[in-house]
Design a protein around this nucleic acid. Structure first.
Lengths: 157, 157
DNA sequence: CTGAGTTACTTAATATATTAAGTAAAATCT
DNA sequence: AGATTTTACTTAATATATTAAGTAACTCAG
C-alpha cells in the first residue's frame, strides 16, 4: 500500500540513478580499471594500449580490424592509438600480401619485454579481485555478464 | 596433467583477454549502453548528459561537485558538458549564497519535459534487460558488482 | 572486363576522459 | 588578522570515443 517504497523492480518508475545498470557497470569497472591503471601508468601505458599489447601477445601479427574487435576499440580510435604506439616503438605495421586493404600489426621485442614485465603485476591485481569476491562469485559474475551481453547482442545484433 | 587447458583461475597465467574482468565489464556495459544510446541520440543527448539529467531530476539544484560524484564524471569533463547543456537550454547555473566557490545547477523546464518524455523509453530498455536475465539474476548481478566495487574502494579508497 | 556494392581502413569533427596546473573562496592554524 | 591549507571549480594538454565521410582495394554480378 505504501507508495513511498517503490521497490518493485518491474515498476514503471526508473531505478535510482545509483542503482541503474549502466552506472553500476561503470562504477565497478572504474574501480577495477583504476587498479590496473596504477600499474600501467608507471610505464606510460593507457588501459587501451595494454589491451592491445595483451591481444597481440603470442600472435605473429593480427589484422587491425580483428584487433579492434577483440579489444572493443573502434577503428577510428585504433588509428590514433596504433600511431602513437608505433612512434614509441611498441608495434610495427606491415602490409598483408593477400589483401592490399588490410594491415597487420605485431609487437616489437621492446613491447614483448614490457608485457612480460607487467604481467606479474596485473596477475596480482586479479588475485586481489578474487580475494574480494571469492572464486565462486567471481565466476558467477563472469557468467552473468556474458549472459546479459549475449542476450542483448542477439536481441539486436 | 594437460598443460594445454589452463583453466585454473588462480594460476599465475593471465586469463585470455576475452575473459579478463575489465573487458567483460566493458563489453557488457557497451551492449547495455548501446540500447540507451539509440533512445538518447534521437534527442541529441549523450549518455553522460542523460546521467546528469537523471541526477538533477527531482532536485531543486545540486552542486557541481556532488553532481559529478553521483554521475561519476570528473570535474574537468563536467565543465564542458554543463557548458554545452547550458547552451542548449537544458540546465541553468546559479551561485550558491552560502559558498562563493560552489555553483549549483538545475534543470530548465525544457529539460524536465525532455526527461519525462524519455523516461518511458528508458524503462522499456530496463524491461528488456530484466527479460534477458530474469529478476533474480539481475539482482544477483547488482549485488556482485556492488560487492566488488566496495571491496576495491575499501582496499585503497 | 566493367560498374555497383562491400571491406578495411583513415580523416574529420565533436564529445569525454585523464592528469596536471591555475584560481578564487573557505576553512584552519597561529 | 595573516599565512597556510583545503575546497570547488576552470583551463590546458593529450588520449579516446562516437558518428559521418572519404579512399583505395576487393568481390561479384552482368
Amino acid at each position: 500500500m505504501s507508495a513511498s517504497t517503490p521497490k518493485d523492480p518491474s515498476s514503471r518508475l526508473l531505478r535510482d540513478l545509483t542503482h541503474s545498470l549502466p552506472m553500476a557497470l561503470l562504477r565497478t569497472r572504474e574501480a577495477v580499471v583504476q587498479r590496473f591503471r596504477i600499474v600501467l601508468s608507471r610505464r606510460g601505458l593507457t588501459e587501451q594500449q595494454w589491451r592491445i599489447l595483451r591481444a597481440l601477445d603470442g600472435h605473429k601479427g593480427l589484422e587491425i580490424s580483428l584487433l579492434a574487435e577483440q579489444c572493443r576499440i573502434l577503428l577510428p580510435s585504433m588509428t590514433g592509438i596504433l600511431r602513437r604506439m608505433e612512434q614509441r616503438g611498441l608495434v610495427r605495421r606491415y602490409a598483408n600480401q593477400a589483401d592490399g586493404r588490410s594491415i597487420r600489426v605485431r609487437l616489437t621485442e621492446t613491447a614483448q619485454a614490457l608485457v612480460e614485465e607487467i604481467k606479474p603485476e596485473v596477475v596480482g591485481v586479479y588475485a586481489e579481485i578474487e580475494r574480494i569476491l571469492g572464486q565462486r562469485k567471481l565466476e558467477q559474475l563472469y557468467a552473468l555478464l556474458e549472459k546479459l551481453e549475449a542476450g542483448l547482442l542477439e536481441g539486436q545484433g
